[in-house]
């Protein structure tokens, strides 16, 4: 029973990781850049929402809306100001720049908000739950999982069914040729980065609503998101969801076995997948001429 409970809670936890992973995977897939500040951007959104709601007294929905719009703008600025400009001696220089940004965001938040853990107060909804067959399911974690599934579905539909999605995939395949058929690669990158950072903001807010947040929690979110992406298999949004759930379950079951080793159990599952199925659990066998 405890194990079944842990599996259910782990699945719900996976929703949170999937939200973080969606944006990370989007930027990596299209721009081929790993945004090492992805987790910190989520935490930035979380603290912004906490600040607006608890500090400035804005209604919660308004605060969240303002922050999400703000994060889209931050994402656009991140591309225009940083990713599009870093051309250095090394191709990885833009990734190094995002690491610098991660250090800046985390430590600035720590100075401004102190190291105290905080949470986004959702009132009674935050603690409400239903009990199904002896297992309690929190409404909030369930809602987060639903939002994650909705976000991944929406992303999938946009990428496969719309003209914008075709341009994104064409740019991801080959930006120079995309330009030759009339696609503005730079603009595509900018919109993709904005979307990804918006998703990071959504993930950060979901995280802050579900548990206590500290200013330096960004790197761990980044790592979990990354593990979800690799476990599931790169380039597959459904893989990302599966990876996130596997990671959540591993952590949650690990904590049942030994309360202090949940995170370690997640890492070990990641390493095990890397050792045995490096292309991820849901990797499609590549069919390419």
């Amino acid at each position: 029973m405890r194990l079944l409970d842990a599996v259910v809670q782990g699945c719900l936890l996976g929703g949170q990781y999937a939200l973080f992973a969606a944006g990370l995977s989007l930027v990596f897939g299209v721009l081929k850049v790993v945004n090492l500040a992805h987790g910190d951007l989520g935490i930035l959104a979380a603290f912004a929402a906490i600040g607006l709601a608890a500090g400035a007294g804005l209604p919660l929905a308004l605060a969240v809306g303002v922050v999400l719009v703000g994060m889209l703008a931050v994402g656009a600025a991140l591309h225009a100001g940083l990713l599009a400009r870093t051309t250095g001696a090394l191709p990885q220089i833009s990734m190094i720049a995002t690491f610098g940004l991660s250090v800046v965001i985390g430590n600035t938040l720590q100075e401004v908000f102190s190291a105290d853990p905080r949470a986004l107060d959702l009132g009674s909804f935050g603690t409400a739950g239903v009990t199904v067959g002896g297992i309690s399911v929190g409404l909030l974690p369930a809602a987060v999982l639903a939002v994650a599934v909705a976000a991944l579905t929406g992303l999938h539909l946009v990428l496969t069914r719309t003209a914008f999605g075709r341009r994104v995939r064409a740019t991801a395949d080959d930006p120079a040729t995309a330009a030759l058929v009339g696609v503005d690669a730079r603009r595509t990158y900018l919109v993709v980065t904005a979307l990804a950072v918006g998703l990071a903001g959504l993930a950060g807010i979901a995280y802050a609503a579900s548990s206590l947040v500290t200013p330096l929690a960004g790197p761990s979110r980044l790592i979990f998101a990354f593990e979800a992406v690799v476990i599931g298999g790169l380039g597959s949004l459904w893989g990302t969801l599966v990876g996130a759930v596997v990671l959540g379950v591993a952590q949650s079951v690990g904590s049942v076995v030994d309360p202090s080793s949940g995170v370690l159990a997640g890492h070990l599952v990641f390493l095990a997948v890397l050792a045995t199925r490096p292309a991820g659990l849901l990797a499609r066998t590549r069919v390419r001429a």
Partner: peptide, 8 residues
Amino acid sequence: RAGQFAIG
């Protein structure tokens, strides 16, 4: 690969 190696 490259970027993923960093987080790995």
